[in-house]
Amino acid sequence: MTGKTKDGKEIFKQSKIYMPIPQQNGRGDRMGRGPYEKSGMLRDTSIPPHKTVHETFDIAFPMEDVKRGDKIEKVIKSGEMTVDVELWYLPYGNKQQDPFLWHKYTKDVKVTTTGK
């Protein structure tokens, strides 16, 4: 998911990966990649059936330093932001090979820029 300011600048980017993490040859702490060397499971972050996965992200609007008299104050740069959330299925774990965009959500949001 990303947060962008009006000028398109990315101010936040974070992703969550859901997948089983198989163990290499059934021993130790390393993940196995090829089916010939996978045995067992170190961890599993795939999305379980019947279950809802919840994620929360907090994106701060960008601030800037403004000189007021002697003091430097932090002031909000822009009260507008575009939030994009995408759910991708990546069979090769990257977006270059055979990626599938399953869902995309976009919303422009605002906070007030005046007030105490």
């Binding site: 998911m1 997948m19 993490i21 795939s46 919840h54 932001m81 949001v109």
Partner: peptide, 22 residues
């Protein structure tokens, strides 16, 4: 004072098994 956007995402798996398989 911190202006922020809280984003809540919910993903529900409707298949008969975990997604994805590995």
């Amino acid at each position: 004072m911190i202006p922020q956007a809280t984003v809540k995402v919910e993903i529900k798996n409707r298949a008969g098994h975990a997604i994805p398989d590995g």
